[in-house]
């Protein structure tokens, strides 16, 4: 919907890389305009009163109870305005929400993301387009999708709550152990974006990040998949890790440690 209104408030920080990112940006801009209008008016009134009615010698304050109807309207009229804009907003909000979360459009492919302390495992369908078959491709912290294809995702968790968050797609969804949560996205820009865990999941929460690579076409995607199967692919994720600054110092005392992931993590850093 951002063809109607685009202030570029969010896109100046992070690209809008999915089909519904534009809707969410539009909603942000719309709320900014409406709310900004009320905010500026209210603040201007407040400051005007502060300056106009500051204490002066010999000027006594007025006696206004605000209980009479003729006085009450002064708070009631802006109040009706607020209600009108609220109703207006709710309409747009629900339309976008229904598009993003309540409908599940037909898909070209499905991916599965499994969160665990503290990494993401991804399952790609392979050639047959179905999960849980022989030609599935498993990756760790590295997700590959194709531009302009609609994807369904299945979110699972092995231990605690995680959150599958891709800011460039304007997408966040909790993963809950014991449940499979479905949703969809459709990437519209090729490139590599951050994929984060956005729900606190323990000591290594800060380290639980992955990369999502949007391939411009199927050829590039297939090449990558073959390379992963052959074990020759150096993931984008690994390259970025080497560029990044020193990892955090970790102190996991052995006596406290029951979690295999914690031991692994403590040894690897």
């Amino acid at each position: 919907m951002n063809e109607y209104l685009d202030l570029g408030l969010i896109t100046s920080f992070v690209p809008a890389a999915s089909s519904f990112a534009g809707d969410i940006d539009f909603l942000f801009d719309l709320i900014t305009i409406i709310v900004g209008f009320w905010f500026v008016i209210t603040l201007a009134t407040l400051f005007y009163f502060m300056i106009r009615f500051r204490r002066r010698e010999g000027v006594k304050a007025l006696y206004i109870s605000g209980e009479k109807h003729s006085e009450k309207v002064w708070t009631h009229y802006p109040h009706y305005g607020v209600i009108a804009f609220d109703v207006f907003l709710i309409g747009f909000v629900i339309v976008v929400w229904v598009n993003v979360k309540q409908t599940l459009p037909a898909n070209e492919d499905t991916i599965r993301a499994i969160g665990q302390q503290w990494s993401w495992s991804f399952v790609h369908t392979g050639a047959d387009g179905k999960l849980d078959t022989e030609d599935d491709v498993n990756t760790v912290n590295d997700l590959h999708v194709i531009k302009d294809n609609t994807y369904h995702f299945e979110l699972q968790s092995r231990d605690v709550l995680h959150n599958f968050a891709i800011p460039a797609f304007r997408l966040r969804q909790d993963t809950i152990p014991g449940r499979t949560i479905r949703g969809w996205f459709k990437p519209t820009i090729s490139g590599t974006f951050d994929l984060q865990c956005a729900e606190i999941c323990g000591r290594g929460h800060s380290m639980m990040f992955a990369a999502i690579t949007v391939h411009p076409d199927r050829k590039s995607y297939d090449e990558t998949m073959d390379a992963i199967r052959a074990g020759t692919y150096e993931s984008h994720f690994e390259k970025k890790r080497q560029l990044g600054p020193v990892p955090l110092p970790f102190t996991v005392s052995k006596s406290e440690t029951d979690s295999p992931y914690a031991i692994e993590l403590a040894q690897s850093f």
């Binding site: 009163f49 502060m50 009615f53 002066r56 000027v59 304050a61 007025l62 605000g66 002064w74 209600i83």
Partner: peptide, 19 residues
């Protein structure tokens, strides 16, 4: 809505005051 009304009332209190 009620919170906005409350804030408007506070701001209206300043009107005609001797601050």
């Amino acid at each position: 809505i009620p919170i906005a009304e409350m804030l408007f009332s506070f701001i209206a209190t300043l009107y005609g005051g001797s601050i």
